[in-house]
C-alpha cells in the first residue's frame, strides 16, 4: 500500500480545491455543490466545512446525489440505492459535482443524466480529489483536481476517512 496523500497533504489539497472553486465567486446564490454517493459525499462534506469557514456569512447550497438508477451496468450487478437530497433548484445555476476518484468516467456520465431530471443547469463542472489518468472509458475530464496519478486497472485508490489519507494499493 502506497500513500498518495498524507492527512496533512489531504488537508492542504482540499483547502486549495475549495479556494479554486470559490475564486471569483462574489455571490454564492447561483452556485450549487453536489457530492456524489457514496464516496463523494464525505469529500464534499469536508470541502463544505472549509467553504463555510471562508464565507461564514453566506449560505452555501450543498446537496447529495445518488446515481444508482442511472447506472449503465444495472443488468450485471444490482445496487441498492442510497439517499438523494437536493433541497434547492438547479435550474439556471452553476453546478459543481464533487467525487473522490475519477476513473472510468461512468459515474459522472450517470450523474449528468441524473442532473437532467432535476432541471437545466447553466453550467456543470467536475471537482475530484484524485484523477486516475489512464483507463478512462468516456470523454470526461475534471475541471478541478486534487492530484493526478498514473495507475493500472488492477490497482485501487481509496480515500481513508478514519486516518484521513489517500492510498493506492
Amino acid at each position: 500500500m502506497q500513500t498518495l496523500l498524507t492527512a496533512q497533504q489531504l488537508q492542504l489539497t482540499l483547502n486549495r480545491l475549495v479556494h479554486q472553486l470559490l475564486e471569483g465567486e462574489e455571490d454564492l446564490r447561483d452556485i450549487v455543490f453536489i457530492g456524489i454517493q457514496p464516496r463523494g459525499v464525505p469529500v464534499g462534506n469536508r470541502m463544505m466545512e472549509l467553504a463555510a469557514q471562508l464565507h461564514p456569512d453566506k449560505n452555501i447550497q450543498y446537496g447529495i446525489l445518488d446515481i444508482t438508477f442511472y447506472r449503465d451496468d444495472i443488468r450485471e450487478e444490482l445496487h441498492i440505492p442510497k439517499t438523494t437530497t437536493l433541497p434547492f433548484s438547479i435550474e439556471g445555476k452553476k453546478v459543481i459535482l464533487i467525487d473522490d476518484v475519477l476513473y472510468t468516467g461512468r459515474t459522472i456520465r450517470a450523474a449528468l443524466d441524473a442532473l437532467q431530471d432535476f432541471g437545466r443547469p447553466n453550467k456543470v463542472e467536475l471537482c475530484v480529489l484524485v484523477n486516475r489518468r489512464f483507463n478512462r472509458e468516456l470523454p470526461i475530464q475534471p475541471d478541478y483536481c486534487g492530484i493526478s496519478i498514473d495507475t493500472v486497472s488492477s490497482q485501487k485508490v481509496k480515500v481513508l476517512l478514519d486516518s484521513q489519507e489517500v492510498v493506492l494499493y
Binding site: 440505492p81 439517499t83 438523494t84 431530471d117 432535476f118
Partner: peptide, 18 residues
Amino acid sequence: TAEQFKEVLQRPIKKVPS
C-alpha cells in the same frame, strides 16, 4: 429502496431509466 423511489417521485421529472 422504496424510500429512495419516493424521493424520485418528488422530482420535477419523476422518472428514472433503470
